[in-house]
Amino acid sequence: MSKTNTIAPRNTAAPRNFGTTLKELDWRRYVIYIGFVVVFLFFAVLLRDQGFLSPNNLLNIFRQTATITVIAVGMTYVIACAEIDLSVGSVAGLSSVCTAMALSQWGLVPGILAGLAVGLVVGSINGALVSLLGIPSFLVTLGMLGIAVGVAQWITASAPQPILSDTFNTLFGSGNFGPVPGLVVWSAIFVAIGAVVLNRTRFGRQVLATGGNRSAAEFTGINTKRIKFQVLLISGMAASVAGMLYAGRLQSGRFQWGAGDELSAIAAVILGGTSLFGGFGSIIGTLFGALLIGLINNGLILAGLDSSQQQVVRGAIIILAVALARKK
């Protein structure tokens, strides 16, 4: 359990002295938190005159990373299960478009249902192809990446679909719940449920076991095909919610929303300490991975770097962090 639970300190029954505790502490597992603090302090000092530490800017970071966080929570399950989902960005785009179109046609609830249906359908297709036909998820979701974004562009004729429903926009991203921005609430809900399910339920354990050694999991009576189907379905659903958050925040549905998010989400998951080879996963780590990426984006913008420079620095930081976090 302690392997997967990176927040709670390991509490061990046997009395142990501080030295052995320190020696056994695997600091690589915490590199994301250390990295987060270091980068945060670095920007806080360097950009103190640019308003980096202002409450507004900090909330902005949360707001901007919310969609990536939601996608990355689903992605954590997929990667911990030793699969990959490259279609999430396109699913978000398709979901934003379908939500917007159904909303203007039939109203609020059908709009939301249409968005969720995108995740349900795409996630199920991905899951079925991977688990029943045994096609590698990399290929299935690579194909789906193209299909989803193509469908989104096709049915909208590349035109943005405005969303005029204030209720929807308030609920999905533009508004606040009390003093807290709605997007922050959304990511908190996903992170909380995601962490509890992964660490504290039978399903979560079975996902980790399937990712850690599929054959042993199967011999233990775990239906690994069902588990693979379920993680891809979860990922699709999370991506479709992220698509609605894009739609609410930007008050429109557009096929470009979410483009490239699969890469940011994968980076967040890996930065957070989830093994790319499966078997280990940390949702809290994923949250901090996403926040670190958001932090870097925000800091680099405030520092006045143009977007080409931002990409170079961001890429370098990600490689550095993963290099530090890797196992010996």
Binding site: R205, A216, I222, F280
Partner: peptide, 21 residues
């Protein structure tokens, strides 16, 4: 190693895997 255990997981996690119920 291939069929009985998830080698990278802890002894406890391996023991509990069929007993989660």
């Amino acid at each position: 190693r291939a069929q009985g255990l998830v080698l990278e997981h802890s002894v406890q996690d391996n023991l509990l895997l069929p007993l989660l119920g």
